[in-house]
Computed example of a mutant assay.
Amino acid sequence: MSRGGIAHWMLEEVGQPYELKVVDYGAPMKSDDFLAVNPMGKVPAIVHGGKVVTEVAAICAYLADAFPEAGLAPDPKNRADYYRWLFFAAGPVEAAVSTRACGFEPSEENQRTLGFGTLEATLDTLAGAVRDRRYIAGDRFSAADVYVGSHIGWGMQFGTMDERPEFVAYWEGLKDRPARQVADRFMREAMEQAGRE
């Protein structure tokens, strides 16, 4: 149940072979070996062609560019919405949801300082972005849908986002993608295994 599931979904969408390594929470994430990959001691992280990429939005964008044959990024001249919503979710959405989950309600003064302002304004903006749209960045599925969709799906599942009609409709169009189902099944099985140990 981590952001690693988003990267796993993206790897499945790319359709290229990969090796998945599970890093347990706690000491393994702070081991010297893992800190050499990601000094933050967080997942996900990928290593491709000897290069390390961390931050799940960056991983999604990187994989879309590294494997253009998968068709997960719009052509460069049509990437405005793709970049806008991919990084809106990585910035304001992530920060607003996390801040609320940690019990912090920004004062009016804080709202001017914080990039997201308020959770309500952020979610209103996101709802407007997905309203009456199957995909967030044009007329076909992209890496931005993996990332934005994951935030919306998990947000509704865990109660950090309201089940707004716009969010429900958008997530309904993504949740049954075969690549997402593979990543979701792996996560469920890993959790069941951990529960038995």
Rank of each mutant, 00 (worst) to 15 (best):
V22A: 00
P28R: 01
S150Y: 12
A7W: 01
V56S: 13
L114F: 15
D24Q: 14
W171H: 09
R112W: 01
E19G: 08
M156R: 12
A96M: 04
L114T: 04
V47E: 12
D145T: 08
S31N: 06
P92N: 04
Q16D: 04
A73D: 07
A121D: 14
Q16H: 10
Q157N: 09
F104H: 07
R133K: 15
I46C: 11
A64I: 04
T113M: 13
F67M: 10
G50E: 12
L63M: 09
W9L: 12
K42W: 04
Q193G: 05
V47Y: 06
Q181N: 08
P44G: 13
L63W: 01
M187Q: 14
W9H: 14
G103W: 04
L126A: 08
R140L: 03
A96P: 04
R79I: 03
I46D: 11
W154D: 09
T160N: 02
M191D: 08
A127Y: 10
E109Y: 02
I136S: 05
K77T: 06
Y82N: 05
G71W: 12
D132H: 11
A73K: 11
G159N: 02
Q16V: 09
D33N: 06
I46E: 12
R134I: 06
M29D: 00
L114P: 11
T99R: 01
L119I: 09
A73I: 12
F104R: 09
Q16M: 05
I6L: 00
R196F: 00
D139H: 10
R79M: 05
D32L: 11
A27R: 11
T113E: 09
A101Q: 11
F88E: 05
A57C: 07
E189F: 00
Y82M: 03
V56Y: 02
A137N: 07
N38I: 00
A73V: 13
K30G: 09
F158E: 00
A90H: 05
I6Q: 07
P28S: 08
Y82F: 13
F141R: 12
G26P: 03
L63V: 02
G117W: 12
Q111N: 03
G138W: 03
L86W: 02
F87D: 02
P76F: 06
A57N: 09
G173C: 09
A70Q: 03
A58G: 05
A127P: 01
G155Q: 11
G15M: 02
Y83C: 08
I6S: 06
R131E: 12
S2I: 07
K175H: 01
A90N: 02
K77P: 00
S98L: 13
E69H: 14
A36Y: 00
R134W: 03
P74H: 06
Y147K: 01
V182F: 00
L11Y: 05
R131L: 02
K77F: 13
G91M: 03
V52H: 03
V37L: 14
D132Q: 08
V52I: 13
R84K: 15
R140K: 14
E12M: 04
G173V: 02
Y25Q: 10
D81T: 11
E163K: 15
R140A: 14
R196K: 15
E13K: 07
A95E: 07
E172N: 15
E189A: 11
G26V: 06
R84S: 12
I46N: 02
V130P: 00
A66F: 12
E197H: 11
G5F: 08
